[in-house]
Design a protein around this nucleic acid. Sequence first.
DNA 1: AGCTTTCGTAACCAGGGAAGTTGCGAGGGA
DNA 2: TCCCTCGCAACTTCCCTGGTTACGAAAGCT
Lengths: 151, 151
Amino acid sequence: MRRDARLSRMLHVLIHMDRHDGPATSEVIARMLATNPVVVRRTMAGLRDQGFVRSEKGHGGGWTLARDLREITLLDVYRAVGRPPVFVLGPAIDHPGCLVEQAVNAAVDGALAEAEALLLARFGAVTLADLARDFDRRFAEAKGRRPPAAG
Amino acid sequence: MRRDARLSRMLHVLIHMDRHDGPATSEVIARMLATNPVVVRRTMAGLRDQGFVRSEKGHGGGWTLARDLREITLLDVYRAVGRPPVFVLGPAIDHPGCLVEQAVNAAVDGALAEAEALLLARFGAVTLADLARDFDRRFAEAKGRRPPAAG
DNA sequence: AGCTTTCGTAACCAGGGAAGTTGCGAGGGA
DNA sequence: TCCCTCGCAACTTCCCTGGTTACGAAAGCT
């Protein structure tokens, strides 16, 4: 299995929801993500708590977008899914008092912090509307070459 | 369990080796890393294959530095330990044909690639000699305030 | 030669996290 | 009342790093 795909999956779902009228049930979303409804509810709970989506029970219920895609950045979604750890790489904490270890960790941590800052800045600069536009471009291109592709 | 600490651990070891006369056995290195000799041999195998250290068997054997610390960057060590994955975050591969998924993955992958490029550039710009210098500074500082600290 | 040291490596176990699965409860519409 | 749908806890599965055990090979010492 790949690593943490919650951010990507939620981005995927939110864009689909924007292009879909009426609520989407966890069952329908699960099929989009090739998984099952419980994983969907678990992962989307954070988005609901942060006010990006709403959920309704009972007949005709399901998930609906609560905000315009232009108002949601990748960073917002990253935070809403719980700010999961970004890196596999990490410092060693074998002998916290060892000054060599401290010097090494300072260098590694510094580089990781810079990379994380850049990553989150990029995430903050892109809205879901931007992704949706990119999707439209890809769709138009695919249509120009072949019969309609699945969305 | 903590994250992948192989890079940090190897940096730690290499600097200690530079400050240590004669070969260091896996047993001694294992104590530096609060682990055991098998993990040390496993992790250092890549460094040996890349020519950064040498290993000798038998009495008086062990590990020795094969290059000056000024000739080894953090990037070299990162590569020598097998270029382990940098990120926990990753794209979703649920429906590879879905153009929404493709647009999402392009954005996420792009940001990750930029962050990784920055990280590796930083790693490439720092030599182990730089870290050793930072250690010396920390050591001098600690000595100025307190009785000698463990190295 | 025989013993000891030390590395080399395979094989297995442990722990942690994301994802998948099962089961049951709560709430809302038909 | 019945069914649909979310909410959530608990358990399982899978992968990865790290730890452990076991055995073999090479090199020095006596």
